[in-house]
């Protein structure tokens, strides 16, 4: 087991009191596996990803639980040790490639910087490595590109650069936070293909954060669905798509616009909106919008149960 997240909770100290944003999240990621975490904006998926890298710098954040990376609880690591992991054994790429690179340094320089932090390679060797990485990401004329500045590249190119940079030190875990959201659909396909190639050629595990069920279907081995800071359902992608057991998952799948079939022009949306962190109901957070709700749903939150296929719903088996 490469990554084992156990009961991760993230709360923020605010003037209004303690705000729970991620509650009791657990999941696992094996070697060479792609796990997708799906959810709407505000479901807590990005924060979960950031907490794995310990990149949450807000002094008012309280993070509890265990994050075991290669068996070690990284939440208890001292900062220098964590820094060795960051960019080394675990790397992250972010949503908006347009602003993710420092404008005043060349592409090559920024990749070399990361390489030189984690390895003892001399600069010239690091430069060569950077160029070969860029080439591996499908960038033609890698040598020229590595001498350019970020503002001279397109969004798709920049995202490739980000991926190349993230991979520069051969990480075992790559966290990709909505890597294609800010890109064109055509470029999106290329990036996804790249991610799949990575799993094959670099043996990396990928934690893919997304809100797009389509991407999940294309790339992920397993998927975890998050709602209002909790995991609603998780399991193998095919399983979940074929037989969703949580009303929210069912709703998400039903909301995908159909190009074929009887109701072409109909959009089916889930009525209502997710609750804000400080307005979460006592029981199941989805209950107010759930067609399957019963009395107990308002009293206490349902727990995830099940070995390979986990669902947090009192009426799990009854969802059609």
């Amino acid at each position: 087991m490469l990554l084992d997240v156990q009961n991760l909770s993230i709360s923020f100290r605010t003037p209004r009191g303690l705000l729970p944003v991620v509650e009791d999240v657990s999941f696992q990621l094996a070697e060479s596996e792609i796990l997708a975490i799906v959810g709407e904006s505000g479901s807590g998926k990005s924060l979960t990803a950031l907490s794995i890298m310990r990149l949450i710098t807000d002094p008012n954040a309280i993070i509890t639980g265990k994050i075991l990376f290669k068996g070690e609880d990284i939440l208890t690591l001292k900062e220098p040790a964590m820094r060795r992991l960051r960019g080394g054994a675990m790397a992250m790429i972010f949503q908006d490639p347009m602003t993710a690179l420092t404008p005043v340094y060349t592409i090559g320089a920024q990749i070399v910087e990361q390489i030189r932090i984690h390895t003892k390679l001399p600069t010239w060797q690091a430069r060569l490595r950077a160029e070969s990485l860029l080439a591996a990401m499908g960038i033609a004329d890698a040598q020229q590109i590595s001498r350019r500045f970020p503002h001279q590249l397109s969004g798709g190119m920049r995202q490739r650069v980000m991926i190349a940079m993230a991979l520069s030190c051969s990480p075992a875990l790559l966290i990709a936070d909505e890597p294609t959201t800010a890109l064109d659909v055509t470029v999106q396909a290329q990036i996804l293909e790249l991610l799949l190639k990575l799993r094959k050629e670099f043996n990396s595990s990928i934690l893919l954060i997304t809100h797009d069920m389509g991407i999940v279907a294309q790339t992920a081995d397993r998927v975890a669905v998050m709602y209002a800071g909790r995991i609603a359902e998780s399991g193998a992608t095919g399983d979940i798509f074929a037989h969703p057991m949580h009303p929210y998952t069912a709703g998400l799948l039903a909301a995908i616009p159909q190009l074929h079939g009887p109701r072409i022009n109909a959009f089916s949306a889930i009525p209502g909106a997710p609750p804000a962190p400080h307005e979460k109901p006592a029981g199941c957070a989805f209950a107010p919008r759930c067609a399957y709700r019963i009395a107990v749903c308002a009293e206490r939150p349902p727990l995830l149960h099940g070995p390979f296929r986990q669902v947090a719903c009192f009426r799990a088996g009854e969802v059609a």
Binding site: L55, R86, G87, A91, F94, D96, T99, T102
Partner: peptide, 29 residues
């Protein structure tokens, strides 16, 4: 608070390196 600083941290740079090499260099402009 900019994104490129988050990237720099994600690369494993220490806070001091982040401030001097990235934030300060940008503020120099």
């Amino acid at each position: 608070t900019e994104d490129y600083i988050r990237t720099a941290r994600a690369k494993g740079l220490s806070e001091r390196q982040v401030i001097f090499r990235h934030a300060l260099r940008m503020s120099l402009i």
